[in-house]
Design a protein around this nucleic acid. Structure first.
Lengths: 342, 342
DNA sequence: GGCATTCTTGGTAGCGCTACCATTCGAAAC
DNA sequence: GTTTCGAATGGTAGCGCTACCAAGAATGCC
């Protein structure tokens, strides 16, 4: 005995409902939807009419199962609240909003293990592309990326050995540029203050070290770091620590703008003149840097653009033409402001 | 002629590979994985061994197709970069990281139309639950939510008529509390400065109006708003506008902390004494408010907790026991700080 | 001991879609 | 005129999993 269409799935219209209504084969509907050029104009119109009338929406799960490929971009970032990654993610979303691709976002919490877990999980969905932050994947993660069977874009940084493609900039150069700017402005006892100290911060620190050594100003006591998550209040505390350790400090290069802002507030509170007594440089150039009082010198990075570019490259690779340039360096810009205008 | 296992899907192990290896039926493996209690301990062990050996990972697409239910939470927020929503989203991610559920995040850009589109899209995946920001859905969106066939949680606000469940607080009360605090502190010509003016900001403004009217201080020229996206630089500009319009201004309630920070910076720049000449109150209480100089009074909201609570409620509903309390008000807290200590 | 009841396990038949192959038909090629 | 080819369409057979039902084993009850 045949059950009278007791559809398990809640009775939404399916591809064959559309086919029946349009008087064509199911496969033709499938084609009309995915690759209209391969279906005659007349049928295309009939099918479109049937789709509209029934309110048919394709089932992405069935599609993914049948084609062994999901229309999903996997995106892995270390933090959701850090404005820097939020901007990258926004760029990715904006670039993908008109495409059929969905986004699967994962938060690694700066943990390599968590990254592996998420990569494993995302892989099980056979994503169309993978975008991951950073270039310091664990060996296992790297293997997962290499075997993902889809375009992979590493973002935020550039480096010598991309899994597939890369979009970012050199954090080392950024750190060096920031520090050299302080030196040129006449500061001498320049501290480095860094929170969270992920690989990118480490490279900024390396840039700082390089500049200081070149100038013969190097002194390990000038460096204050912590693995604690970055925040404005933390910036204030670290600055107090730095100052206690080294009262002759006359400048600071901060690992990011939150820290820089914390330093600025502490200077106000302690009546330390900026930029006369202390020069401050941040990193990332959040929009508040330019309105802070005094406005804060910072390294502007192109986060939103990194997201957009990563998607563009992945999309190109999906459609067959791998960009000839596999590593794209979007650079950065030193924004000179009042906080270092001595 | 039968093709010798030319698997379309790249040769990853499947459920029946595991079943064969463990010497059991495929369906038993399925059960062992989803509901271990229904399988004898011995088989469970054998199956687990086979899973581990083969490195089997279930295919979520096949699972979703067969069960007509995807293990996906759909999450819709108006902005990815606004710290407020980023915190909510973080709460959601953290609550779901140990569960089998994935998250599908959508950015509505504060657009009702975009929300409808995304809801339609998300619906086609048959998600396990839907979490949406705000309570002002369009009629079409509301219908989509009602017919989603899954638990729905509206977050950020509370209101009288939930689609299903709600977690948030009263923005009107928040606005009123902030304004009343300024009044009690002795400020009289209190302005409202608001950017972006989404429905939540509108309600904060309504709270401000209520407090001002009750105190007999109401004056429409005290209100400065714009639909432009909120930012710190914008806060500075709006404050200058407000001051130009109403030079006797002696306090401002800002629609959010970004704006408040912009106001504070402008006060510094123009040598306006805070809190003596001008009192400032923000909204949300970002962590930098407490270290700003002077520290800024703000309405602390529990964004992360809202995310966690929303997930907890959705999870409860999924597992059958709908919470008796469908609307949860997490409240807010007035944080009195230097910026209003006259 | 017989019978109902529960617990475990397995088989079958899809879920909604697409890959692959087959067919038809008209136009171009010879 | 026959062959060849390509474009347009359709049929079949799954993709990997689970809902549903059935059956056997174990348990409880009188």
């Amino acid at each position: 005995m045949i059950k009278p269409r007791s559809r398990r799935g809640g009775g939404r219209p399916t591809l064959s409902d559309v086919a029946r209504k349009a008087g064509v084969g199911a496969i033709t509907v499938s084609r009309a939807l995915r690759d209209p050029a391969r279906v005659s104009e007349e049928l295309r119109r009939q099918i479109q009419a049937a789709v509209d009338e029934l309110g048919y929406v394709p089932d992405p799960n069935a599609r993914a199962l049948a084609s062994a490929r999901a229309e999903v971009f996997g995106v892995l970032v270390p933090s959701l609240t850090n404005n820097v990654f939020a901007e990258v993610v926004r760029g990715i979303y904006d670039s993908l909003s008109d495409s059929p691709f969905r986004i699967q976002l994962g938060n690694t919490h700066y943990s390599g293990l968590e990254e592996e877990r998420l990569l494993q999980l995302f892989g099980s969905q056979r994503p169309a592309a993978l975008i991951v932050a950073g270039i310091d994947q664990t060996t296992a993660s790297r293997k997962l990326l290499e075997n993902a069977g889809c375009p992979v874009v590493q973002v935020m940084e550039t480096g010598p050995d991309p899994v597939d493609m890369m979009v970012g900039f050199s954090h080392l150069d950024g750190g060096r540029t920031a520090t050299e700017h302080l030196i040129e402005a006449g500061y001498r006892r320049i501290g480095f203050i860094g929170a969270r100290m992920d690989p990118r911060s480490q490279r900024r620190l390396a840039g700082y070290r390089m500049a200081m050594e070149n100038a013969g100003l190097s002194d390990p006591r000038l460096i204050t770091t912590t693995p604690v998550l970055s925040s404005v209040p933390l910036g204030r505390e670290l600055f107090r620590d730095a100052l206690a350790k080294m009262p002759t400090l006359d400048g600071v290069f901060c690992n990011n703008d939150d820290i820089a802002l914390g330093v600025l507030f502490e200077c106000h509170r302690a009546s330390i003149d900026v930029p006369k007594t202390i020069g401050i440089v941040g990193f990332n150039d959040l929009d508040m840097m330019q309105v802070a009082f005094p406005s804060i010198t910072s390294i502007r990075t192109h986060r939103y653009e990194i997201g957009r570019r990563a998607v563009a490259m992945a999309l190109a690779a999906i459609s067959g033409d791998r960009p000839r340039q596999r590593v794209v360096d979007l650079g950065f810009e030193l924004k000179r402001r009042e906080s270092t205008a001595r």
